[in-house]
Design a protein around this nucleic acid. Structure first.
Lengths: 355, 355
DNA sequence: TTGAAAGCGCTAACAA
DNA sequence: TTGTTAGCGCTTTCAA
């Protein structure tokens, strides 16, 4: 089989110059209809399927690729519907602009601090980090070094990157106040990971003072904002149902007069795990314990129960990220964005037990 | 800010030729250690972060990109853990080779037959379709036209593409025989989508004769292989819990002497939905109705129940796809692969009710 | 409306 | 071990 034909082959077969042939495909300049047809015919005859993107990319200096750094192994990230829906909103927004998403696995753990080779050397015009990242993040540093602009979701606000987040602090505060209003006084919380050194345990004050990832920190601060001091802060290694279940077992096994009457989880997956764990222990939800989540997901397996949760506009967040990406590509400097959230009261929270 | 430095800038600052500078970065030839250091120093001084991938790509004719066509809107595809775990296995396998995954949304519906523009014009060396695709699939045709080799998961076996699948037909047959062995005679089945025109309804014979997507067809054939004629075939629009629940409502609402005593679902998500739906109707699982699934997922929210299911090696399937991709890149012609499955008996199947 | 020519940034023969 | 040279396939001035 012969090598793939190039634009030059097509041009010579059509009896025109390469530049004219280019025009026939790009439509980026005036060209006689007849000439154009001749070029396209020649292309068909040669089985030429259009300009090689590699040539175009080198010439334009643009790859049309948006690198998306997911928080972790894909397997873990994508078990989280929040990441997936965000990605979906992002793709929907940038696809019309001809941009594609390159998946880049994030750091797998503390022990393996090396960034994925794709971050060092893949062609991309912009990068998106969908889950946090600290200022000294090696990923961010590598991107900086390469001069690739970045959009960070739920991260620290830094000067040289664009941040897109939600008002999660206020959301958690509202959920907490809702519980206080129901008479709850012993409130515990189940959090997202504090940083790359993921743990599954109740966190002490020193540990809490050393939270790396902003998202956990802000949502924890929301409880404080509501004037509540949680009776326990349980840190999970990932936003997954099973970690919520483990948290429930740890938090709810104590004597009735000491165990929390309400639990605020920092994600819906964790919250639904807490619901399951509470039931494992023979507790009724919400009669014995009230449980609130965060995200506003649809959790079909919880039906008929509906989680009380802080609803965040996930797809919209993805769209906002997509817009920021396009603005960066256009050479503009997008503003940081902060999207609002709202409390949705479901069936998993109720009056505090009177006992 | 000045334009990004190029290899030529670095070379001239280091007082060497461009090709020597190239060697300093690629290590693809003999170079004196001192020279190399000089080049790297010059690079650091100029804030040069390594060769521009675009140049390398054009030169080599390779983008290092594997386009992965997901079955549908990402949102839907990635709610399916099977797709996600497959992708994870694939990424793990090809990442060490420096290959990246470009996400390409598949066709959204019948009404919108256009393929994603990325398929027509994104730079990629190989394409992977993670969920079926028929011979006349526009996606496959576009790839063919562009001369991009393809690996298809769970699809038709075609001459010019590599197929990776599992022995699902035998797996379903085994699950069905397990039920027959438990005394079940009235067995219904809940299937994956038949094709792009997704429906949620019991399918008649004509509809069944016109299944487009191989995966549903093969798993249905497995029931036949076990010598069972299903009392009803319920087709779902997607492998999601809620569709399984709807199927259960449709299949299990009839009078006790007519309703199926066992249901074989073509996925675990569907099966767990069926379990939930059966319980909604006040039926006990497995006392009143036995339910078997397919995939072998961990479903934390089903605990303490464990689904009886056909376990498939999903991550391994992803790895096999990754190997096929690399072989194609090496110019070889990989064999089609068919991976084995095995039945895992859980707590959701039991003896047929004696009534 | 078309063509000639330059060059995007890099790598790889080949020669020195 | 290093340098010279050519060119990957394309787009875009600029001139005709």
């Amino acid at each position: 089989m012969s090598p793939r034909p190039t634009l030059a082959d097509v041009a010579s077969r059509a009896g025109v110059s390469v530049s004219t042939a280019s025009l026939a495909f790009s439509g980026a300049g005036p060209i006689a209809e007849a000439t154009k047809q001749r070029v396209l015919d020649a292309a068909r005859e040669l089985d030429y399927s259009g300009p090689n993107p590699l040539g175009r990319q080198l010439r334009s200096g643009r790859s049309g690729i948006v690198g998306v750094v997911v928080g972790d192994a894909l397997k873990r990230s994508f078990r989280d519907p929040v990441s997936v829906q965000l990605l979906d909103g992002l793709v929907d927004t940038i696809a019309p602009a001809g941009l594609g998403v390159l998946l880049i696995p994030g750091p797998t753990g503390v022990d393996e601090p090396a960034v994925d080779p794709l971050i060092e050397s893949a062609a991309m015009d912009v990068a998106v980090m969908i889950w946090g990242g600290t200022a000294e993040d090696p990923t961010l540093q590598a991107l900086r070094r390469r001069g690739i602009p970045a959009v960070v979701v739920e991260g620290h606000e830094l000067d040289d990157i664009v941040t897109v987040g939600i008002d999660d602090r206020a959301g958690v505060a509202e959920a907490t106040r809702h519980l206080v209003g129901l008479g709850h006084r012993r409130i515990a919380t189940v959090t997202l990971p504090f940083g790359p050194d993921r743990r599954a345990a109740v966190a002490g004050p020193e540990r809490i003072a050393d939270i790396r990832w902003k998202i956990a920190e802000r949502r924890l601060a929301g409880i404080d904002d509501a004037g509540v001091r949680p009776v326990a802060v349980y840190e999970t290694p990932a936003s997954l149902v099973e970690h919520g279940t483990a948290a429930a077992h740890a938090l709810l096994s104590g004597p009735i007069d000491q165990r929390p009457t309400a639990i605020v989880a920092q994600s819906d997956l964790l919250a639904s795990g807490v619901v399951i764990g509470a039931r494992d222990l023979g507790l009724r939800v919400p009669e014995d314990v009230s449980i609130a989540g965060f995200d506003g997901l649809d959790l079909p397996w919880l039906t008929p129960d509906v989680l009380t949760t802080v609803v965040q506009p996930i797809a919209e967040k993805g769209a906002v990220v997509g817009q920021a990406v396009q603005r960066l590509l256009a050479g503009e400097q997008p503003e940081n964005a902060m999207l609002p959230v709202s409390l949705r009261v479901g069936t998993t929270t109720g009056p505090a037990p009177t006992a």
